[in-house]
């Protein structure tokens, strides 16, 4: 859980970290606190997993990774944990989750994101996943992303 001060800090940083030599000093000044106190709070939020990391989110398209596929698989429930871990460990898989099926429309319970310079590259990677899953997988599909419609990250709502 987060307290009111944490919340102010998150609100101040959710738009991004300033690209200046001492970004935390700048944010601390806006919040009316010491830089050290802010760094301490942030370290604490990080140790609790509220902050996962402080990093750049690249635009895959602009990096030439113009082909982005969400591969989806219907994997035996008995084997999902073991196989999911193997798929998630593949170097070209950026995100991998077990999610609930939505029958009858959606039989898939394993989702793995794969990126490549073109669809042939993505298909080759997808074939590697299929080979690992073998007969533990019944149905499969791939959904290519054709447009980023929004990408802002988490936004806290202003509390009245």
């Amino acid at each position: 859980m987060i307290d009111a001060r944490d919340r102010e800090i998150i609100e101040a940083l959710q738009g991004g970290l300033p690209l200046v030599p001492a970004p935390y000093a700048q944010v601390a000044e806006i919040l009316g606190m010491d830089e050290d106190a802010l760094l301490y709070r942030l370290a604490e939020l990080k140790s609790r997993g509220v902050i996962r990391r402080i990093a750049a989110a690249p635009n895959h398209y602009k990096l030439g990774m113009t082909s982005n596929g969400m591969t989806v698989w219907d994997v035996d429930d008995d084997r999902i944990t073991e196989l999911g871990a193997r798929i998630g460990a593949l170097p070209f898989v950026t995100h991998c989750y077990e999610r609930p099926r939505a029958l009858p429309d959606w039989p898939y319970n394993l989702f793995a994101m794969v990126h490549g310079a073109d669809r042939d590259e993505v298909e080759a990677k997808r074939a590697e996943i299929a080979a690992i899953l073998g007969d533990a997988c019944r149905f499969k599909d791939i959904l290519y992303s054709t447009r980023i419609l929004k990408k802002t990250g988490l936004r806290l709502k202003a509390k009245g």
Partner: peptide, 22 residues
């Protein structure tokens, strides 16, 4: 970094929050 952010090669730079942990 500023150039890459302005050109939207970097869509976002900063802390990634885990809503579940909050």
């Amino acid at each position: 970094l500023t150039r890459m952010k302005d050109a939207r090669v970097i869509t976002r730079f900063g802390p990634f929050f885990d809503a579940a942990a909050m």
